[in-house]
Design a protein around this nucleic acid. Structure first.
Length: 806
RNA sequence: GCCGCUGUGGCGGAACUGGCAGACGCCCGGGACUUAAAAUCCCGUGAUGCGUGAGCAUCGUACCGGUUCGAUCCCGGUCAGCGGCACCA
């Protein structure tokens, strides 16, 4: 019989579904294991060949855990709100809900085609009102706890999407999604105070089993820096406060710089002697986008504020103040003390404007460049700090400043609050009402979900307001608090909202009275293993940690972190090593591969392709190798089908035990490629040497997480009881892995000469004698004296020889 | 510029804690089967040189150096590529 993958795969998918083999229980006595993948955005293009990489990886882990006796939760859902669907709907004059429905149906059939062991009874969809009810509920809780606020801020505005973007969504000055130009625009926006959690988001990383590069990237993104705030008196009478990480260099501060948007500038304006110059600079800066500003980073510009000067608090010297756009309004206090001797930017600016550069840390040559090293330098020209190290000087000056009431220790973060409004239709409506008397008021919980109204047009209005704003009947409402006429918020939430808590809903997806029931969340606790893309490190992963911590603070969840372990996969590239994209025409459709080779071959190949953490190019010829392997496994099955069911054949026992160990360990460390390689080696060996039914049954069990359909079919053919996916994971016996003899490498002076076969655990003297008696060794050592012997047990012997003394 | 990662055959990639570099697979070459082809099976396959031949020798993990009996692995330096951040004081 031929290996007919098409029939086999459909057959077992149906049986698994009917028997609900992969349904997780919320009340099991077994130990729980929660495996999570990032749920897909159901795009119109359907499943991409990149999707199966992380899905298959976690499916393998989940399947192995079930065989090891765990109660496994391995869920799937759809993150379905968002722009592409809405844009498609506009273009084709459809309702986004219809587009979403259609796309989800397509994704579902493709995922089922690949034989994943998802619990299909727990599917969630972020656009389902029963789901987004709870997204809205969380928003109201954030609002009630002072973590959601509305602010008029300059926002990133995508000229094509006609929509506000979060800082994280702007890449190289263009929209991450559509690549169009992003401009600055003043708008009133809902903000989430993620900065209130900055400290905890950094500190709590320490206790988590996240791959190191994720931790590092999150830490860099949050960007903690420790320093001090220092007050400078000015001739205008006001105090100018700055933030610095180098308070030790205060004696070297020879001028100051304020951002062009600094609030004091308006107040001081009448005092300026060069009003026109200053205004012109401010206007030019305001016109530039953030991107343009950084583009011009090389060339420093600025204008001196003539008429106002500052006083250095330690030297008492009057120093000039400049405005320059290299100082950001949104970081620290929006003003800096400039220490050109020890800061590269200040040095550049001082050189350009001919300002004095004073050395206060010895160790460099400040004529040539700023000396920024904090490790080696010693303080000079710094009064009472002279002779101290930089570290000691920081402590002493900070103490001195706070003693005098001139400043204090301060920690700053690069992380900004999260811009949470979107002026689009296809998102969760923000469940708040504005009342002239009461301000912003949440709608009562019993009115949730606040449904998306049916609108005529999904397009953003010409004035940049949400399409919902055109729905007069919907917008006009009454204040839940005082009953007066009031207006609904018309912005919707960003796509990141629904994905910030979805893993909790999987624990208890049908609960209508809570986002997750207490028993369910106490049982499942948190995600044990979450695999996802590096591109979500500073977006989804950070956002969901933030929401989870908030839910922990208000007592909804029992853990302060959502995920115990986080791993990451590399991208699947096109055949030539380039990114797969429609425009390059190198996109591989998983359906084509499944039609030609079967789902098991696709699963196997995508795991065999290379190191899971690294990017790997697709190869259409290499897929065939995996199909050949499965054919060979099939042949082995047919060969032993009618044999009696006795134990392992003695000649294969060692190899089988080795493979069990190797495959098990490799799955845990996500080295799927070498796990498959060892299965291939075993198959080669069983084919060559011959094998028993028990040998093949064990092979089939080991293969089943990778290629579950063929495994079930072979298990049945071999007369196995029950389903293969429900068998216990094979165990190995170390004592059976010992071979009688070992091949030992023989080196002479560190160079490989030959190999000898010696009994396992051969005594040193015996091995040395054996090596010396070898013909090649004898020739090489002739006339030489053996001065030293190095032996690595069961591996190698190194004979150190030198010419014989005469 | 800063932070992180990576450099191994024609290709994707292996190599546990410093111990036979190139597992496994692809491609390619030769052979068997076949009227023929596909499929399958068997053999070969890092480079160079020597040898009719079994084989032998030398070189080889981006580059230069160090430590070691022994280095793809550890240390110092250089180069190249990828990813993230980017005037964050």
């Amino acid at each position: 019989m031929k290996y007919d993958f098409g029939t086999i795969e459909k057959k077992w998918q149906k049986i698994w579904e009917e028997k609900k083999c992969y349904a997780a229980s919320n009340t099991s006595e077994k130990q729980k294991f929660y495996a999570l993948i990032e749920f897909p955005y159901p795009s119109g293009e359907g499943l991409h060949v990149g999707h199966p990489r992380p899905y298959t990886a976690m499916d393998i882990v989940a399947r192995k855990r079930r065989m090891q006796g765990f109660n496994v939760l391995f869920p799937i859902g759809y993150d379905a709100f968002g722009l592409p669907t809405e844009n498609y709907a506009i273009k084709h004059k459809m309702h986004p809900r219809e587009v979403t429905k259609r796309n989800i149906a397509r994704f579902t059939s493709q995922l089922k085609m690949l034989g994943y062991s998802f619990d299909w009874d727990r599917v969630i969809d972020t656009t389902d009102p029963d789901y987004y009810k709870w997204t809205q509920w969380i928003f109201i809780k954030l609002f009630e706890n002072g973590l959601a606020y509305k602010a008029k801020i300059p926002v990133n505005w995508c000229t094509s999407c006609k929509c506000v973007l979060a800082n994280e969504e702007v890449v190289d000055g263009v929209c991450e999604r559509c690549g169009s130009e992003v401009v600055r625009k003043e708008k009133s926006q809902w903000m989430l105070k993620i900065t209130a959690y900055a400290e905890r988001l950094i500190n709590d990383l320490d206790g988590l089993d996240f791959i190191e590069r994720v931790k590092i990237q999150q830490k860099n993104w949050i960007g903690r820096s420790t320093g001090a705030e220092v007050d400078f008196a000015t001739t205008a009478g006001d105090t100018l406060r700055v933030f610095t990480t180098r308070p030790d260099t205060l004696f070297g501060a020879t001028y100051m710089v304020m951002s062009p948007e600094h609030a004091l500038l308006e107040k001081w304006f009448p005092l300026f002697k060069n009003k026109e110059e200053i205004s012109a600079y401010q206007e030019a800066a305001a016109r530039k986008s953030d991107f343009e500003r950084t583009e011009m980073a090389k060339d420093k510009t600025g204008v001196e504020l003539k008429g106002v000067r500052a006083i250095n608090p330690v030297t008492g010297n009057e120093i000039p103040i400049f405005i320059s756009d290299y100082v950001l309004a949104t970081y620290g206090t929006g003003a800096i003390m400039a220490v050109p001797g020890h800061d590269e930017r200040d040095w550049e600016f001082a050189k350009k404007f001919g300002l004095p550069i004073i050395e206060v840390v010895k160790g460099g040559n400040i004529e040539e460049a700023a000396f920024t090293d904090c490790q080696t330098g010693v303080m000079v020209n710094s009064g009472f700090l002279n002779g101290l190290t930089v570290e000691d000087a920081k402590l002493k000056i900070t103490e001195w400043l706070s003693g005098k009431g001139l400043g204090e220790k301060k920690v700053n973060y690069k992380l900004r609050d999260w811009v949470f409004s979107r002026q689009r239709y296809w998102g969760e409506p923000i469940p708040l009402v504005f009342c002239e008397k009461c301000g912003w008021v949440p709608i009562p919980e019993k009115e949730l979900p606040l449904l998306l109204p049916e609108v005529e047009s999904y397009e953003t209005t010409d004035n940049g307001e949400s399409p919902l704003s055109a729905m007069k009947d919907w917008v006009e409402t009454s204040c839940p608090s005082c009953g007066a006429p009031a207006k609904r918020e018309t912005d919707t939430m960003p796509q990141w909202a629904g994905s910030s808590w979805y893993f909790l809903r999987y624990m208890d997806p049908h609960n209508s009275s809570a986002l997750v029931g207490k028993e369910a969340v106490d049982y499942w606790n948190r995600v044990d293993w979450y695999n996802g893309g590096m591109e979500h490190t500073t977006l989804h992963l950070l956002y969901s940690r933030f929401w989870h911590k908030f839910l922990y603070d208000i007592g909804v969840v029992p853990t302060s972190e959502p995920y115990s372990k986080r791993t990451s996969h590399g991208m699947i590239l096109g055949e030539g090593g380039e990114k797969m994209s429609k425009s390059r025409g190198n996109v591989v459709n998983p359906n084509d591969i499944v039609d030609e080779f079967g789902a098991d071959t696709l699963r196997l190949y995508i795991m065999f392709i290379g190191d899971f953490e690294k990017a790997a190019p697709w190869s259409s010829t290499a897929v065939k190798g995996c199909k050949r392997f499965l054919d060979r496994v099939w042949n082995l099955g047919e060969r032993v089908m009618d044999s009696p069911d006795s134990g392992y054949s003695p000649e294969n026992e060692s190899a089988i035990n080795h493979t069990i160990k190797k495959v098990g360990e490799d799955i845990e460390s996500m080295k799927f490629n070498t796990a498959i390689a060892s299965l291939m080696s075993l198959v080669n060996e069983l084919s060559d040497k011959g094998c028993s039914k028990a040998d093949v049954k064990t092979l089939v069990c080991l293969l089943s997480p990778f290629a579950p359909h063929i495994a079930e079919e072979l298990w049945e053919m071999l007369g196995g009881k029950g389903l293969c996916c429900e068998q216990p994971w094979p165990s190995y016996d170390e004592s059976k892995m010992v071979d009688a003899t070992k091949v030992i490498a023989v080196q002479i002076n560190g160079k490989l000469k030959t190999t000898v076969t010696a009994p396992t655990d051969c005594a040193d003297a015996e091995l040395t004698a054996l090596a010396l008696s070898d013909e090649k060794v004898r020739r090489a050592t002739e006339g030489m004296e053996l001065s030293k012997t190095i032996i690595v047990k069961n591996k190698l012997i190194n004979l150190i020889i030198k010419p014989q003394r005469s």
